[in-house]
């Protein structure tokens, strides 16, 4: 994620990389470009994730509505 955005916003990504991932390399701009890993592509997981988000969104919306009605 940080590596993907490094060419677009180079300063903040490098600062974050140095602060959080210094053990992986000193500068994000000198490190390797991330390799896509096909083994992580999982249609079922993406479907479950979307369902999870739909539930979380609905719960969040209901919580918001109930807090407004009780206010």
């Amino acid at each position: 994620m940080i590596q993907l955005l490094a060419p677009i916003v180079p300063y903040v990504t490098d600062a974050i990389y140095q602060a959080l991932f210094a053990s992986a390399g000193k500068r994000v701009h000198l490190g390797p470009w991330p390799e896509p890993a096909k083994r992580w592509v999982d249609n079922q997981a993406e479907h479950i994730g979307e369902e999870l988000l739909a539930v979380a969104t609905a719960v969040g919306l209901n919580a918001l509505l109930s807090s407004r009605s009780s206010a």
Binding site: L4, P34, E35, P36, A37, V41, D42, G49, E50
Partner: peptide
């Protein structure tokens, strides 16, 4: 499950972004 969802999405994004950069479509 949320980790697997995020990882799957991320690796699709890595593929798409890499392909775009390789064609200078930043």
């Amino acid at each position: 499950p949320a980790d697997r969802w995020l990882l799957s999405r991320l690796h699709r994004v890595v593929t798409e972004a890499t392909e775009a950069f390789e064609h200078n479509e930043f």
